[in-house]
Design a protein around this nucleic acid. Structure first.
Lengths: 145, 145
DNA sequence: TATTGTTATACTCTATAACTATA
DNA sequence: TATAGTTATAGAGTATAACAATA
C-alpha cells in the first residue's frame, strides 16, 4: 500500500496526469491514417492482441460507452478492417474480428511511428528512453488491459 | 541516437501510444471540477508552474490553436480563476495570471487525486510505481515543456 | 426482469477561415 | 507586411435516453 502522507506520490500522479493529457493531444496529431480516430486505431490494436471480442467487451476495454462502440465498429466494418459475426452462444451479442487488411494497416502504422520516434529521439537520451520502456507496461496496466 | 533497425523501440512506442491514449480517456473521467475540461485544468497547472503567460504562449504549450485558447481563457476568467491584464510592451498581447482561487482549486485537485491514487495503489506494486515516478519527467518532456 | 446492442439526439471540445488591432 | 488575438462557423467524437431483441 502506498503511503499517501508523503507528497511525493501525489506529485508524481499530478505530473503524470498532466503529461499524459498533453501527450495524448500530441499523439492525436501524428495519426497514421487520417480517416481513423485514435480510439478506432486502438480498437484495431486491441483486436490484434486479444483476437476477437464482442462490442460490449471492446467498449469496456476502450472506456467508451456502448453506443460509441457501435458506431466505431460499424465504421471499421465499412472500411473492411473488421468482420462481424453472430455470437455462437448468445444471439444478442456479436463477435468482432480484425481482418488481414487491419493487420496490414497496423504494420504500416508501426513503420510510420518509427519516423515519429526518430524525430523524438533527438530530444531524449538513452537513459530517458530506458525509463519510458520500463514504464510502458505499467501505463498499459493503468489504462486497464 | 536510437537504433531503429531493432523492433524493440518501435514496440515500446506502440505500447506507449496506446496506453497514453486510453489512460487519457480514464483521466478525463476522474475530473476534479466537472465544469472544467482537462485542458482547462492543465492551463491552470501550467500557469501555477510558469507564473504568467500570454494566450499565444499557452496555446503553444497546451498544443491547441489560438482560438481555442481564447475561449478557454475567457471561461477561466468568468470563473474567477485567471486575471487578464494588458501586456506592458505590446498592446496586441495580453498577460494571463492565475488567481488565488485557482490555487485553491489545484490544491483540492491534488487531494482528490490522492483518493484516485489510493484506488489504483491496489493494482500496482512498489516496483511498478517506481517505474512510473521515474518516467513521469520524461513524459512531461515528450509532452513538450 | 436483466442484459446486449442500436437509434436518435445533444453536447463538449477543437479546428479552420475570416476579421480587427497593433507592430 | 507580419503577428496577436478574436469572432463565426463547422466538424469530430462522445454521451445520455429511449428502444428492440434476446436471455
Amino acid at each position: 500500500m502506498l503511503d499517501l502522507s508523503h507528497g511525493a506520490d501525489a506529485d508524481a500522479v499530478n505530473s503524470l496526469r498532466s503529461a499524459v493529457m498533453r501527450l495524448a493531444r500530441r499523439l492525436k496529431h501524428q495519426r497514421v491514417d487520417e480517416s481513423l480516430s485514435p480510439t478506432e486505431m486502438s480498437v484495431l490494436g486491441t483486436l490484434a492482441r486479444c483476437g476477437s471480442a464482442t462490442p460490449g467487451e471492446l467498449a469496456r476495454k476502450e472506456h467508451v460507452q456502448p453506443p460509441s462502440m457501435t458506431r466505431i465498429v460499424a465504421l471499421l466494418e465499412t472500411k473492411g478492417l473488421v468482420r462481424l459475426e453472430p455470437h455462437p452462444d448468445d444471439r444478442r451479442q456479436k463477435v468482432v474480428t480484425s481482418t488481414g487488411r487491419a493487420e496490414a494497416m497496423l504494420e504500416e502504422s508501426r513503420r510510420r511511428r518509427n519516423a515519429w520516434l526518430a524525430e523524438l529521439a533527438g530530444e531524449l537520451d538513452e537513459e530517458e528512453w530506458a525509463k519510458l520502456r520500463a514504464a510502458a507496461p505499467v501505463l498499459e496496466k493503468l489504462a486497464h488491459q
